[in-house]
Write a protein that binds this DNA or RNA. Structure first.
Lengths: 300, 300
DNA sequence: AGTGAGGCATGCGGTTCACGCATCCTATGC
DNA sequence: GCATAGGATGCGTGAACCGCATGCCTCACT
């Protein structure tokens, strides 16, 4: 059964005439006659009484018409719903990102997106980039913001990556420190004698491992997990720490930042990641510009 | 858009595979692939992600599926509804008949029909046969029980008539009357000197006009409209009256009936009448046997 | 790492089907 | 009585759909 038949049915019922319905829909009277005949065969009942002038719904036709119109309405509802997805007036966005991206970048993008497209239902999961890549491949996420050093990023083959921004490593040091306020990037080697604040006593697991690559073992005087805590130690003049630029958004008084020479610490890169093979919902393509804009604001 | 596409859509969503859906519905995988592609073009959105093994609904596909299933449900509802009409589990019957038929024939048929088919909504209009014939032609009635003498019946060209029964005219006379209880049919001429009970003082308008055709002007002593009233006068021995057999169902004590010679009063015939050109709802064809059965009971 | 299998996409040929055109039939109304 | 309106239908054509065969990709197993 062709849905065009149902539209013809509706038009004939409205006009009470095959000819008029055909004119409205761009069919000949002949085509309308045959489509109605086909529909009557399909339903196994006459839908119209053929009168000398025009036609009139039979009892069966009146019953069938209600259902036919409801079915057509449902199909146009479907079209409207899909159009709403395209307009971002509805839909779903399952977003994943890692902790540092959630310091400013992702919330900022989400806030702007949600303000512009309140109909889209956004869910967000914070986690490790590697897990998110797997979730994308499994269809559990629509989009993720991932990060990594070049060799890690290269391993994310299951997803399609688009570069978002670079996230250089900065040195956080007490505002009164002798190296604070300098213009030239610092070399790690110049900081060999300093005390350090790190996330772990073993530098291998942290950003501070960059010091090892520069040939000295940093003296880790204080261990703290959260950035606010680390900044507290630094502000008190107790040590230095390394911090990704993205995490350095809300810097407390008493802490200064200094750039690091590019050779001393590899710059981590951020990317948007989407499943490689599957179609992307409109919410994904719609959200990407917001992410890019937020990236510009955060780095600018 | 073919509704078969929607069924394929539903089957694919259920199986997660074009091949499996095709097997279920008797299509090849190739046909399924193309039907889904056609549906995706129709909706302007991808409905399935193509995975290495099988397919999975996209966000748009999940939305569209609900509507597609609802539309299909509505169409099968239509089929079920029309089948219910055929089974007389639902529907409408607009019946017309004349007063004498409502004395026993029509109520009896209606009662039996309503008991067997409580789902059919029956409406009934009492009125003149000529008006009912017009109502049938105008589509305001589905079925009528009409009556008339041969020349009247011949004028009912707008409808299709089926003979139901004959309704001969009887003479109602007091139980103690000299002619009561006879075996041979009476001749009207034998009653020339009697007093009569009629519906009007002018015999031309009533059954009594048969007397005029037999060459005498009856003496109308009492006028009464209702049959019960007429029977009252007859039972009291005040006169005779002519009565159609159908109206003589509940005869009070004191009144006797006598057959009339066929030549003296033309026998009125009863017919079912349906519109000539239009299709008849199942309720009409379903009701006819009940009418015929009631006719057999009333006359037998 | 190679190979086989599962699964969707697609070119090709044949058949069906739905359309428009023209015509016929019926009933109406002047 | 004839013109008109409106639905039904035979005929020819073109589009669309189907099945078959094949191609391509991914995964699993050896």
């Amino acid at each position: 059964m062709d849905t065009a038949w149902l539209e013809v049915f509706r038009a004939v019922a409205r006009h009470g005439s095959f000819t008029a319905a055909g004119t409205e829909l761009g069919f000949t009277q002949s085509a309308v006659s045959r489509q109605i005949a086909a529909l009557e065969a399909e339903f196994g009942a006459p839908l119209f009484d053929r009168l000398p002038r025009g036609v009139r719904l039979t009892q069966q036709g009146r019953r069938a018409l209600g259902h036919a119109e409801a079915a057509l309405d449902r199909l146009s509802d479907a079209r409207r719903d899909l159009a709403a997805l395209d307009r971002l007036a509805a839909g779903r966005l399952r977003l994943g990102s890692f902790a540092t991206a959630d310091a400013a970048l992702v919330p900022r993008a989400l806030a702007a997106f949600a303000a512009d497209h309140p109909g889209v239902h956004v869910t967000h999961v914070e986690g490790y980039s590697r897990d998110h890549v797997a979730a994308l491949a499994a269809g559990a996420l629509d989009l993720a913001v991932v990060s990594g050093y070049p060799e890690q990023v290269a391993a994310y083959e299951a997803v399609e990556l688009t570069h978002l921004l670079d996230d250089p490593v900065l040195v956080a040091l007490p505002a009164g420190h002798r190296l604070a306020g300098g213009i030239r990037p610092l070399r790690l080697a110049d900081l060999a004698g300093e005390s350090w604040v790190a996330g772990s006593h073993t530098p291998e697991e942290t950003l501070i491992s960059a010091c090892l690559r520069q040939g000295f073992r940093p003296r880790i005087a204080y261990v703290a997990r959260e950035w606010t805590a680390k900044f507290g130690f630094v502000a008190a003049g107790l040590g230095l720490t390394l911090v990704p630029a993205l995490a350095a958004g809300a810097l407390p008084r008493g802490v200064a930042l200094a750039a690091l020479h590019p050779d001393d610490a590899p710059t981590r890169t951020l990317h948007t990641a989407i499943p490689r093979t599957t179609a992307h919902p409109p919410s994904v393509t719609g959200f990407l510009p917001y992410l890019r804009r937020a990236a510009g604001e955060v780095t600018g």
